[in-house]
Amino acid sequence: MKKLFTSREALLCILILVMTLSVGAIADDFLSIGNLLSIYNDTSILIILALGQMLVIITRCIDLSVAANLALTGMVIAMINSSYPDFPVPLLVLFGALLGLCMGMINGLLVWKLGIPAIVVTLGTMSIYRGVIFLLSDGSWVNAHEMSKVFMQIPRSTFIGVALLSWASIITVAVFYYFTRYARTGREIYAAGNSPTAAFYTGIDVGRSQFIAFSLSGLLAGLCGYLWVSRYAVAYVDVAAGFELQVISACVIGGISIMGGIGTVAGCVLGALFLGVINNALPVIGVSPFWQMAISGGVIVLAVIASSRAEQKSGRIILKNAVLAPSK
């Protein structure tokens, strides 16, 4: 019972509830189901990206290129749609996801096969992907009137009262919950991040796990490329500029350890929701949007300070007299 209340997830839940209720006390409309759903809908893309980022961070890497990846796939899809409005949209979404996957795989391969630190690789690919958008689009925008109706309608249409954009994130959350808890590959990713040496001795290819994490992160970024562009009905070079930091912030607030090996899907989703609620609540309570950045920055610093103690627990010694394997 004590554990339930001291866990990161419970704490975040309480914080989010308190925030939502206190904002609701000021503005009645804030607590209406429609508004809550729209907050979730607003946060959906962040949730999806944060889940991909979570896997990468768990393997002790970091993916700074997600936002650039999203923008590039978004631009490619929007351009295809504006030139060939009859091209079936579901295929287009699939194509976007595959394109994102390829970009994620490039990151993953560079980290896996060449052993370059992830931060360097993704710093590089981030500016490359961003630049390629400019090369493709020549700096021009793809605007709403150039996109087909279906293209823009899909994330907006509802199923049981919930927008498909929200469904996309719900499904991703469900898949990731299963993947990280029960799938073998998912468990390997945790093992690889928690103790690479131990993982190696148990027969896990650490580099391959990192590669898979990067690929999945790229796949989701590609999917979000479509969602973003169709939701905001515009594609240009600077789409989602700097969004990667919000994604990483969501992970950090959600208790995913940057040192690898620690983090849950629930924490990740709550971290993203936390940011989403703040972003939506500030205008309601009349705080200037200029405060938003400082508040989320402050929250990140406080969140990492709060979790620093939790992470300092040392590992349990299970077999005291076991022969310790040489560390190399």
Binding site: I258, Q292, M293, G297, I300, V304
Partner: peptide
């Protein structure tokens, strides 16, 4: 101070302060 006192990886702390410092400029 945050990095050394709480023993938190510098990359996380400075991602936070990156928004914090610029956020203060915005405010």
């Amino acid at each position: 101070a945050v990095v050394t006192h709480f023993e938190i990886p510098a990359i996380v702390v400075t991602i936070g302060t990156m928004s914090l410092f610029r956020g203060i400029s915005y405010i």
